[in-house]
Amino acid sequence: MHSERRKGPRLGAAALTILLAGCSLPAATPMRGAVERTTEYPVVAVDRALAKRLSQRTPERFGAEFTRAGIVDADRIHPGDQLNFQIFETVDAGLLGSTGRAPTLIGPIEVGGDGAVSLPYAGRIQANGRRLEDLRGDLETRLAEQTPNPQVIVTRASGSGFSVTVSGNASGGGVVPLTYGQRSLRAALAMVGGAQGDPALVTVEVMRAGKRGRARLDQIQTVPGQDIALRPGDAITVTTEKPRVAMLGASASQGAVPLERAGETLAAALARAGGLSANAGDAKGLFVMRSTNAATGSEKPEIYAFDMTQPEGIFAADAFALEDGDVVYVSEVAVSRTGRAVRTLLGFTQPVDQITSLGG
């Protein structure tokens, strides 16, 4: 009787073996072998040296047409500038109507599109490209023909055309006048409170006379010549990148993972996502799928393979910089799928290593 009671379970285990041999769950994601055998895209095994080469990127910088432009003379007058005039006369009954020899205040007067300004008793005077001091002397000469020994002071009003605009992801924004202390790009950004985010993820774009220049903020801060001189009318736009990668397959968690900094490595991002799944992740099947390569300029999709069972593979993952849009894929070990098939057939969720009790 005892042997007969054990016959049923033994037959059940044998039947289960036959069922598993002829039945398996459909593959939800490709196994490591399927990825490695693909012929549509190149699969590149990555070691530490290759990881470092692939991670070398040439950051965006301003070209020569921007870096060669010298600091603009803040005294030069340009169309759109707003000018204030103070005129002192040495007689009690002045030409311009002042009494008690108080100065006559005129302005602000905008410099016209033709670069000229008009003043009473002086007529229309060309101001574009001239220094404030030169315009002052010209006015005194013209007024001296009608009033004895006039004295003139010319100043630029705040918010005049001698300015740039800052917009985008800066702490503030608006119109920034180009005064003596703030005629460079960094000075203008500082005037609006600076840019937000990791400087290596912040791009500053300058539009000047129909030409566009771009540079990363960390390059502007550290590379000589990248803190370019500004020109009146420059339009500055600050953009902060938000790079992210997709974590798929048998990782501990799946979904979009934001990169915390520029050049964040595969090992760091994978660790923040919880690493490989302890029960399902294939340590030999870690892949990065990249549509385009910013380091090489390649437009052809490539697949980079990492063997995390070897120290070289771990070091390579720690040196491999991820890029925005990368897909990090962890293949599933075969035993994990077998276990899911067993649980589906038996209708419960016991681990595979406990199923052997059916035969005992």
Rank of each mutant, 00 (worst) to 15 (best):
R5E: 14
R6V: 14
K7E: 13
L11W: 12
A13T: 07
T17W: 10
T17I: 10
T17S: 05
A21D: 11
L25R: 10
A27R: 14
A27L: 14
P30T: 01
P30Y: 02
M31G: 15
M31E: 11
T38I: 05
D47G: 15
R57L: 13
R57G: 00
T58G: 13
E60L: 15
T67S: 08
T67C: 10
R68G: 08
A69Y: 00
V72W: 09
V72P: 06
H78K: 12
D81F: 03
D81E: 08
L83Q: 05
F85G: 06
Q86T: 06
I87T: 01
V91E: 13
L96C: 01
S98C: 11
T99W: 09
P103L: 05
G107M: 12
G107K: 11
I109Q: 12
E110D: 13
G113Q: 12
D114H: 04
P120F: 14
A127R: 00
E133F: 02
D134A: 13
L135K: 00
L135Y: 00
D138M: 06
A144D: 12
E145Q: 11
Q146F: 14
T147D: 02
T147P: 02
T147H: 02
Q151P: 02
S158G: 15
S163G: 08
G173I: 01
S184V: 00
L189H: 06
M191L: 13
G193I: 04
G194W: 07
T203S: 13
V206S: 04
M207S: 14
G210Q: 03
G213M: 02
A215I: 01
A215G: 02
A215P: 02
L217I: 01
Q226L: 06
I228R: 04
I228V: 08
R231I: 07
T237F: 13
T239C: 03
P243A: 13
G249Q: 11
S253R: 12
Q254P: 03
V257W: 05
V257G: 03
P258F: 07
R261F: 09
G263C: 07
A268H: 10
A271C: 04
R272W: 03
G274F: 04
G274R: 04
A280S: 13
D282M: 05
G285L: 05
L286D: 02
L286R: 08
L286G: 07
F287S: 08
F287I: 05
S291R: 15
T296Q: 11
T296V: 06
K300T: 00
P301N: 09
I303W: 00
Y304V: 04
F315V: 03
A321N: 12
A321Q: 08
L322W: 10
L322I: 05
D326A: 03
D326E: 09
E332R: 15
A334Q: 12
T338H: 07
V342P: 04
T344D: 03
L345Y: 15
G347S: 06
G347V: 00
G347C: 02
F348N: 12
T349C: 04
Q350D: 11
T356I: 15
S357A: 15
L358D: 04
